[in-house]
Design a protein around this nucleic acid. Sequence first.
DNA 1: CGGTTTTGACCTGCGC
DNA 2: GCGCAGGTCAAAACCG
Length: 316
Amino acid sequence: MEFTSLLNTSLDLNYNPQRIFDEPDFRKQEADRRNHHHIATVSEERGALMEELSRVSAENKKLKEELTATCENYTELKNQLIKYTTTNKNTQSPKRRIEAVIRNNSIDNVTDNIITNGNSESSSSEEDSSKKPREELIKAKISRVQIRTEASDTSLIVKDGYQWRKYGQKVTRDNPSPRAYFKCSFAPTCPVKKKVQRSIEDQSIVVATYEGEHNHHHHQPQPASKLEASSTTNRSSPLGNAVSTAGSTITLDLTKRKQSPEESRNVRGRVEAPELQQYFVEQMASTLTKDPSFKAALAAAISGKFLQQNNQTEKW
DNA sequence: CGGTTTTGACCTGCGC
DNA sequence: GCGCAGGTCAAAACCG
């Protein structure tokens, strides 16, 4: 877009020297005096404006630096909090610890914790048939997906392209929102289960935990079906592929809201499929163009650039 | 009518 | 052994 054509940088000084010479002498002298006075006033105003502008620019720069420092502090504190909560959870029972870690960290850490736990137990005691379920849990591929939805949307529906049958719902102790249990119903023998619960920190985030691997191809939802998957509005979304990526944590924003730096890192760091990357790039572009604060920041940046150009022009 | 959802009951593991 | 919490079952209700 050609902004320079839209921006009128000229000052209307009501000053036309050519006309002065057309006046008779007595009028010319009077006009000269007036114009000298006018030019002096305008110059003063201009100087004051320039001073104000440089003051505001300096203040803007200072605020920017403060904001950057605050963001850095925030990130550091957040990391410390995560580290602290992870350490605290280690005092819980193994099962509760797995739950807690699944809630708080990425699945890479979860898998590590489960395996470590399993090894330490097998080395400390003999074989026990009661441990078989846990061994199955160790073998089971667990992945977690965070989906940002509208906070007003109370349904625990995760549109991932698979067909699920809900078999239970529970209110857990540490989260007031209920947890829903689903089994994959596309294939009767498919062992995959998922748990869906709203995040306790952010009610707009739905956390889906997948256990196991699908033993069938990805299901394309049927139209006009009551299935959960059929309510998927974006059929071209590669989320189904993303979910089948075992051992990963994926954060999706379905509300067109701006992603936090943490969430963006999450996506950048873990999602590598080309179609997913393209999907996220498109979503990010869409999000940015619809974000008023981004527009405001862009406008500020552009106007700042123009002010710089004007300053340079005036120096010529 | 077949599949899904709801929901109370039951099972299981764990800590005390 | 008891209580608690998470997970699962299964009958009834619901829906297209």
